[in-house]
């Protein structure tokens, strides 16, 4: 199986879907002639032309709203936000329009839109460019939220997201764009709402989404090598819908859980996961659920400190040891 980058996996998914369905159109700042601020759309404008790959001005509320409107008539826009942090200037369009139009019309109007882009800290760009709004968006019934951690997942989930008839918020990570994974050449889709056990284990469940999954995989190696602890790593992949069965099955197997996310802790995704586990698997727990999130302050700029602000393998190991 060829090794390709997370970026290339997304690029391939977009190209395949542009080819498959003439109603798919890519829109966003610098996605066409500039080849993408992070090169995710590289080569697509040259290949598919200006009708299918469209540069927009810096005007998120305008072009996200426009894409929502176009989707109501059956266009399938894939809108790039250069950073998910910029979604904050178009929240009305995402939440009130994309998120509510199906419901408020009594199911008469579908909104098959994908909004995608990086949502991560850790790149020394300061608080305003480092937001991770998966918790905010998953709080809106009507929206779907996915956070792929690998190139394989990114490709399969992107293709599923574009074919989905509901609005999908697709959160990538600039620190992963250059990382490589094995990705098959033949076509595949990953259904939204299915988690993935990235590493089997028996003693403790490390439950994560996005880049935190990779942090957990490193921590699992350390736990095994240095402490003889067998950690299972569950990648949620999709925040809403959420694959409760897979994560609860893991907890029922290991009886211990550490929840890891790069989101902030207060009302973070893992607050919901912790609530769910205590409600549905309380008797299976041999220890309190533990959480590790980004340290609870705006993303600091200072490069060495910012590295400490996000969950590290070492913090995951220490937290795991505290309950093993």
């Amino acid at each position: 199986m060829p090794l390709i980058t997370y970026r290339k996996a997304l690029n391939d998914a977009l190209a395949e879907e542009l080819l498959r369905d003439e109603n798919v159109v890519l829109l966003g700042e610098e996605v066409a002639e500039y080849n993408g601020a992070y090169k995710v759309t590289e080569g697509l404008w040259a290949r598919f032309g200006s009708k299918r790959v469209v540069d927009t001005p810096i005007s998120e509320a305008g072009f996200v709203g426009m894409a929502v409107g176009a989707s109501m008539l059956g266009i399938r826009p894939v809108v790039e936000l250069m950073f998910w942090s910029f979604s904050y200037v178009t929240f009305d369009q995402i939440i009130n329009n994309a998120g509510c139009v199906r419901y408020m019309s009594g199911g008469q109007i579908a909104c098959p839109i994908v909004i995608r882009g990086p949502a991560n800290g850790g790149t020394n760009v300061g608080a305003t460019h480092s937001h991770t709004p998966e918790n905010f968006l998953a709080n809106t019934p009507g929206l779907k939220v996915v956070c792929p951690a690998t190139a394989y997942d990114a490709k399969g989930l992107m293709k599923a997201a574009i074919r989905d008839n509901d609005p999908v918020m697709f959160m990538e990570n600039t620190l992963l764009y250059g990382e490589q994974w094995e990705v098959p050449e033949e076509e595949y889709l990953i259904p939204i709402g299915v988690a993935d056990v990235k590493r089997e284990g028996t003693d403790i469940s490390l439950i994560a989404h996005g880049r935190a999954v990779l942090t957990c995989l490193k921590a699992a190696e350390i736990l095994q090598a240095q402490h003889g602890i067998s950690a299972e790593v569950v990648d949620l992949r999709s925040i809403r819908p959420l694959d409760e069965e897979t994560l609860l099955a893991s907890v029922r197997k290991t009886h211990r859980a550490v929840l890891v996310e790069e989101n902030k802790p207060f009302c973070g995704v893992d607050a919901q996961i912790a609530s769910l586990i205590q409600e549905k698997a309380f008797d299976e727990l041999d220890a309190p659920i533990q959480r590790i999130s980004a340290l609870d302050a705006p993303a600091i700029y200072s490069p060495p400190l910012e590295k400490l602000q996000l969950p590290t393998p070492d913090r995951v190991v220490q937290k795991a040891l505290s309950i093993c």
């Binding site: 159109v25 305008g62 709203g65 426009m66 409107g69 176009a70 109501m72 008539l73 059956g74 266009i75």
Partner: peptide, 14 residues
């Protein structure tokens, strides 16, 4: 107002 724009966009696109 941007939804109306998007409807116009879809018409032109099609």
């Amino acid at each position: 107002t941007p939804l109306g724009l998007g409807i116009a966009y879809a018409l032109k696109y099609k």
